[in-house]
Design a protein around this nucleic acid. Structure first.
Lengths: 223, 223
DNA sequence: AACAGGTATTACCAAATTGTTATAATTACT
DNA sequence: AGTAATTATAACAATTTGGTAATACCTGTT
């Protein structure tokens, strides 16, 4: 059984080859596309676990592909990451805003690539884990209890869920919309500042510096 | 009676010592092995409830040990977890694929270790136990009798079942829905306040402070 | 039919949680 | 540096939730 299906889209054949080769060696099942349109086609057919998208591609660029996929509920649980050139600072934000989970900067070493991919796959499993551990923080989803530096902290439901969500994918930036959808649901409408306030309360209660703000995008949990 | 048998296999004596010490303190019965082969031998002899395996060990590595044990029906219900070094991204996935239930990253803090192990044990601690003991409370499911601080308390059916359910996984928060489903069944529809009232009666009768409310979530039994 | 034990419902109250608003602080951009 | 956009904060308001006690309902028994 393969470790998972990965779709890679890039217009440079060399890059496609290198990445494919290495990830195949790691035991992943690899599919490739050389432009945005065929990336989408292929994605629909094979339902990959992870999609690696180059930004600049013919027919449809990576960001548009990502937006399209994200708007399709079939890909709600698909991990999408971008391949970006080192210098393009902007794409990082744009990429994250379009709903990507992470990005990888080109050129990328084999080792980094592999460990990133493995880390991303690990995330899938984390979301349903009973106990999340991050540094000094233990989040016990069964007991509904958070332990920070040995002290039990009881968070009310919303705060707990929010922290739990963020901590389920350390490093991943969660868009405000995603957070709203996952914690509040689609039908409930709450004001703009609601998330901030909850984030603040969490930061206050567990006094660790582990939730950081990514302006214009969202929040992420880290270390 | 010990809280359970744990076999720890690691080639570094230091780690063995630290983990053993802490888990013994927690009331577990500890056995150790320093290589894969003797881990298997020992496992056969003592039938541990939980096996903690280092990946890199002499003679037979942790993954192979795990695969072997999993192929043996005697160990179908044994919990197997890996100890992995932080940087070994690969092994986590491979480990889980080989049939392990979880993994613990090295170095691990005492606190994390203990809560993980306890959580794992909670998994096997069946909800079908005949007699539940929690502190001063004895719940005899066959006789339908609860004894608190030596005094017998007779609870009516629903109250008994409710207490019995909560006490079957101390610490775990039971959602109202779960409770309704397990005690009342899916087809019966009862009002919103029903659970509360029963909880109240239980609290009243056994006068201990052992059922706590997690607002918006449910109830849990503790100490 | 009246009773009794167990179970469910209701309505009201208190309290915790959650959401909003207005204002300050920060950041990003020109 | 100045401006606009975004986020942080604190105080407040609204809502939800659970606790409580009294009451009604069932089912089987006498």
């Amino acid at each position: 059984m393969s470790k998972g299906k990965i779709l890679i889209a890039d217009d440079e054949q060399d890059i496609l080859d290198i990445i494919s080769y290495n990830l195949k060696n790691e035991g992943f099942e690899i599919f490739t596309a050389t432009n945005g349109v065929s990336a989408i086609e292929l994605a629909k057919q094979i339902s990959p676990d992870l999609i690696i998208l180059d930004i600049m591609m013919p027919l449809k660029n990576g960001i548009d592909v990502c937006k399209f996929l994200r708007s399709n509920s079939n890909f709600k649980n698909t991990i999408i990451v971008f391949l970006t050139a080192m210098n393009d600072e902007n794409f990082e934000v744009k990429g994250l805003q379009s709903g990507a989970d992470d990005y990888i900067t080109k050129p990328v070493s084999t080792r980094v690539l592999i460990s990133k991919v493995n880390a991303l796959f690990r995330r899938i499993k984390n979301e349903e884990k009973e106990i999340l551990v991050a540094g000094d923080l233990i989040i016990d989803r069964k007991k509904y209890i958070v332990t920070a530096s040995g002290k039990d902290i009881s968070l009310p439901k919303k705060e707990f869920e929010l922290l739990s969500l963020l901590a389920s994918s350390p490093g991943k930036v969660f868009l405000r919309n995603d957070i709203l959808e996952k914690i509040w649901g689609t039908d409930v409408i709450v004001g703009d500042r609601t998330i901030d306030v909850h984030i603040r309360k969490i930061r206050q209660k567990i006094d660790m510096d582990c939730i950081s703000t990514v302006k214009g995008v969202g929040y992420k949990f880290e270390l």
